[in-house]
Amino acid sequence: MTTQLKLIALDADDLAVISAHVQDARVQTSDIVWRQDEKRLVVGMLRLDWEQTLAGETAPRRLFAALRFDRVLSCKSRNIDLDAPQAALELVGIEFHPGEAPGGSALLLFAQGGALRLDVECLECELTDLGGDDLAGELD
């Protein structure tokens, strides 16, 4: 059993660490939840267990995880069909572009040109593993 990750990002350097952990994660559009009234975006995903891979394991394993952004002022999508709940996306990475301090924009970049742009009051992001890795392996 792998130790479950819980990472928090409050600046661009922290977000780069989270981005590395979610690289190549699988996301279904139905697992992208924008809670405008709460100023929160939550993305459910199956992320690759990079720690296990780097430890020499031969079969890659995926873990259920949740990526949460708080203090989000707006959420815009490009080349993502939010009306197709079963559509599969592959998360390439996350970038932060500073704006008027402490705010800016977080960009979630997906394969095939998809993107989510989050304008934030300040960067407040959390990645939490949810377990269920036995089931996650069956979904590959």
Rank of each mutant, 00 (worst) to 15 (best):
M1L: 06
T2Y: 04
T2D: 07
T3D: 13
Q4R: 14
Q4G: 12
L7Q: 13
L7K: 09
L7A: 06
I8S: 13
A12D: 14
D13M: 12
D14M: 04
D14N: 15
L15Y: 06
S19H: 03
S19G: 15
S19K: 04
S19R: 04
V22K: 03
Q23C: 12
D24R: 09
A25G: 08
A25L: 10
A25N: 06
R26E: 08
V27A: 07
V27L: 06
S30N: 12
D31R: 13
I32G: 07
V33C: 10
W34C: 07
R35T: 12
K39M: 11
K39V: 00
K39H: 14
L41G: 01
V43A: 06
V43W: 00
G44A: 06
M45C: 03
M45K: 02
M45N: 01
R47Y: 02
R47I: 03
L48S: 01
D49K: 01
W50T: 03
L54M: 10
L54H: 09
A55Q: 10
G56P: 08
G56Y: 09
E57N: 13
E57Y: 07
R61I: 13
R61W: 00
R61C: 06
R61K: 12
R62K: 13
R62W: 04
R62Y: 07
A65P: 03
A65H: 01
A66C: 01
A66R: 15
A66I: 11
F69E: 04
R71M: 11
R71V: 00
V72E: 03
V72F: 02
L73H: 09
L73S: 11
S74Y: 01
S74L: 07
S74C: 07
S77C: 05
R78F: 08
N79Y: 06
N79E: 15
L82A: 11
L82N: 04
A84T: 10
A84E: 14
P85H: 08
P85C: 10
A87S: 15
A87L: 14
A88F: 01
A88V: 13
A88G: 04
E90V: 15
G93W: 02
G93F: 02
I94P: 05
E95N: 11
E95Q: 12
F96C: 00
F96L: 05
F96V: 01
F96M: 07
H97C: 03
P98S: 06
E100Y: 00
E100V: 14
E100G: 01
A101W: 07
P102N: 05
G103N: 06
G103K: 05
G104V: 08
S105W: 03
A106E: 03
A106G: 04
A106L: 02
L107N: 07
L108E: 05
L108T: 03
F110I: 08
F110A: 05
A111Y: 09
Q112C: 06
Q112S: 14
Q112T: 10
G113S: 09
G113R: 09
L116A: 10
R117N: 09
L118G: 10
L118S: 09
D119V: 14
V120M: 11
C122P: 00
L123M: 13
C125G: 09
E126W: 05
L127W: 09
L127N: 08
T128S: 14
L130F: 10
G132W: 08
G132I: 05
D133S: 13
D134T: 13
L135F: 11
L135D: 10
A136N: 10
E138N: 12
L139H: 07
L139C: 11
D140T: 11
